[in-house]
Design a protein around this nucleic acid. Structure first.
Lengths: 195, 195
DNA sequence: TCCATACTTGGACAGTTGTAAAAATACAAT
DNA sequence: ATTGTATTTTTACAACTGTCCAAGTATGGA
């Protein structure tokens, strides 16, 4: 990352960044990620190569910025912590909504990219991190021996497993069903006995 | 994959493959994955480039073969299913042992590659798949509403979360402790109430 | 308005990638 | 040993990558 996606940039720069980001999103909807070249991105964005490398290290870097922008809506509003829903379910609902809003894009992406290939793995990994950050701070891990970081990591992974099942695995699922899956996975219904 | 890593290859080919695989392993111990070039691999393996492309699509393909070879020891022996340990704990113990045996290699790898970069992500993803395959077939998912595939996916992910915590996060942990973490994560101690 | 500074752009560069075609070599069966 | 087949290697090629520098252009302050 050559620039801080949090800080607001001057008008001109913001426009340039957006041009490359939409170029990437459009390309992802058209072809697999490894067939996307920096040259093609520049052509789509109508900026010279040097400008691309001004802002990004490589196309992976741009990709991260895209996920970052996409995931910008997910952040735990501290006001929500008073609600009786748990932190996890709260952030899950937000992520579910976000994925739902961007379903067309996601459908295009998985049409072009293998479900366990580079790109999708990267996508999941990125959102696991985002959601993990939201969860980590506000997780009640009393009465547990397992290290808190590991627990937080586990929760965010599980959130993304469910989302992946629904949106990348294309299993139509309501939010209520999804929440029940998530709860079941996290509260544990795995039986550790053999017959 | 240009060749089937299951089927045994003629002596000569086997030697060539091994040369590239050890070249990759050696390189991983020396430098980050994205600094490893096909040219350098060929130089290390002492084979021409065309030979490389005879056997592999690209360096990612070779990498997969390396993980595959490394993970060859993990397969659920049907005889073990009579034991009173669960399938999950059984496969976990095998994986723990495997990672432990290859700890020097793993240490070298994470020394050169960022913990949530390309390579490590790929590594985890690969072993999640391997372990998922072992688990999926023998999982008791009665009394659960969550789709079995999702449950199996969850279990294998959790196994790798613990292994990642231990070996990539460098938290020294005995097998017994590790098993208790795994059990706790899977049988669920996450509290879904607030305050 | 002018200037200094910072950023953008164009062009060039060495190194890498993946492919394709011949030439060389190994291999198996007669 | 000889032939025919399959594989490996050589060589060449076009395209892409990431970096560099110098020329151009914008921007804000005096």
């Amino acid at each position: 990352m050559r620039y801080d996606p949090n800080k607001k940039q001057p008008r001109g720069i913001e426009r340039t960044l957006r041009a490359f980001e939409t170029a990437m999103f459009d390309s992802l909807a058209e072809k697999p990620f490894d067939k996307i070249t920096v040259n093609a991105l520049c052509q789509k964005a109508d900026y010279p190569r040097a400008t691309f490398y001004n802002y990004f290290d490589d196309k992976f870097d741009l990709l991260n910025c895209c996920w970052y922008k996409l995931g910008n809506d997910i952040h735990l509003d501290p006001n929500n912590l008073q609600l009786n829903k748990s932190v996890i379910l709260e952030v899950f609902a937000q992520a579910y909504e976000l994925f739902d809003e961007n379903k067309p894009l996601l459908m295009d992406i998985i049409k072009n990219n293998p479900i366990d290939g580079q790109l999708v793995t990267n996508f999941i990994h990125h959102f696991t991190k985002i959601i993990g950050a939201s969860i980590k701070a506000n997780l009640n891990t009393n009465e547990i021996n397992t290290p808190p970081e590991l627990v937080a990591r586990h929760c965010s992974s599980t959130v993304l497993e469910v989302l992946e099942w629904i949106y990348l695995g294309q299993h139509k699922t309501t939010l209520e069903e999804a929440e029940s899956y998530l709860t079941e996975l996290l509260t544990g219904t795995i039986h550790f006995e053999n017959d």
